[in-house]
């Protein structure tokens, strides 16, 4: 039995019908065709589906769409206007924080909330802060750098060097 819900995604309000069992990630990806949010596992282990729900990073594969009724969602598509970049996107690009790009949207959405709580995270804090996001390509070194870069950029500070340390 479908139910009507209202959900604001990236600032735009959507009135949609969902089954109670519809997962939030499927609403976003399939019904609303925003495919930047990905699915990588069944057990809320990988974090590829991370979005912001009322500003908090959550795993949208383990939340029902109906639970987001009346709430506000931000996905990777809402980070910046087309052609522009949010500091976290810039950090990932400048520091080579992505390879295949599949974990990247979830990783960035998590990083956005992390930096909101802690604008100057240490390496250790970043590593623990992204421990709910699996990346199979990068070995995480450059993701740590990307988040540090974004943290500096968001505070208007000088950004760290993005040259590779491959000597």
């Amino acid at each position: 039995m479908k139910k009507q819900i209202t959900i604001t995604i990236n600032g735009e309000q959507h009135a949609v019908e969902v089954e109670p069992r519809t997962l939030l990630v499927h609403l976003i990806r399939e019904q609303l065709s925003m495919t930047g949010t990905h699915i990588g596992c069944d057990t809320s282990s990988c974090g590829a589906c991370t979005i912001l729900l009322d500003g908090k990073s959550i795993k949208s594969c383990t939340v029902l769409a109906i639970q987001a009724d009346g709430k506000s969602v931000q996905t990777v598509e809402g980070l910046a206007a087309p052609g522009e970049m949010h500091p976290i996107q810039e950090g990932f690009k400048e520091c080579h924080g992505l390879q295949c790009g599949f974990c990247t949207p979830g990783m960035m959405m998590r990083a956005v909330e992390l930096l909101e709580h802690n604008p100057n995270p240490t390496e250790e804090e970043i590593r623990w802060g992204i421990s709910g996001n699996l990346c199979r390509c990068t070995g995480y070194n450059n993701i740590v750098r990307a988040i540090q870069y974004a943290g500096a950029k968001m505070q208007g500070k000088e950004t760290p060097s993005t040259e590779p340390t491959f000597v």
Binding site: E30, T35, G36, E77, F92, K93, G101, T104, P105
Partner: peptide, 23 residues
């Protein structure tokens, strides 16, 4: 040269096109 990657823009914007995105 450590050129920044050309492919990154679409991945960062959530505009990559993976197989489950094909509809």
């Amino acid at each position: 040269h450590s050129l920044k990657r050309k492919e990154d823009s679409r991945f960062l914007a959530g505009k990559g096109n993976y197989v489950d995105d094909v509809k």
